[in-house]
Amino acid sequence: MKATSNEQALLKGLASNDSAIIEQLYKENFSTIQAFILANNGSYDDAKDVFQEAMITLYEKAQSGSFVLTCQIKTYVYSVCRRLWLKKLQQMGRFSHPVDNLEETISVDDDLEQHAKHDAAFAIMDRALKSLGEPCKSLLEGYYLQKMDMQALASEFGYTNADNAKNQKYKCLMRLKKLFFAQYNIGE
């Protein structure tokens, strides 16, 4: 089954973090996943976590411009969730019998492997930022995540001028890089 042009539009919306389209995807797919998780030893929170992780996997794929989905989004999300949940059940030692298959599935192992790598990097960055402490963390987040300019950052954090803020930012950045690469290399 080829993804329709409508589904391609949805993927584009997801890649650009369009909240209306994400809401549509959420509405169309969450109940199925919820029913699947709940029917297989899971809770409502498990369903939420697994579904959101699957959405992030799809987002990562959609972000690479050349990506074309070879099946329906619904099938893809279900396949990813199923795989993720099976893994989690195995980790918890609760896995006793093959989980009932409610929908058709496709193989998503490669995508999940890729996602696991991204997820690991994300976790390392998250930890590194957190262990950086304030005001470094907020300063870097302001500059690199929220893309604020140095002048705005300087006034927000109370630096006397943008140059001081910039110097401080670079010091913080060097510490962050050290923290990140110390773990990221091991992770690789």
Binding site: N17, I56, Y59, Q63, H118, A121, F122, Y144, Y184
Partner: peptide, 12 residues
Amino acid sequence: QMDQYSAVKSIK
């Protein structure tokens, strides 16, 4: 990595 982190964080 920072960009990716930022993007995933905002999608989350």
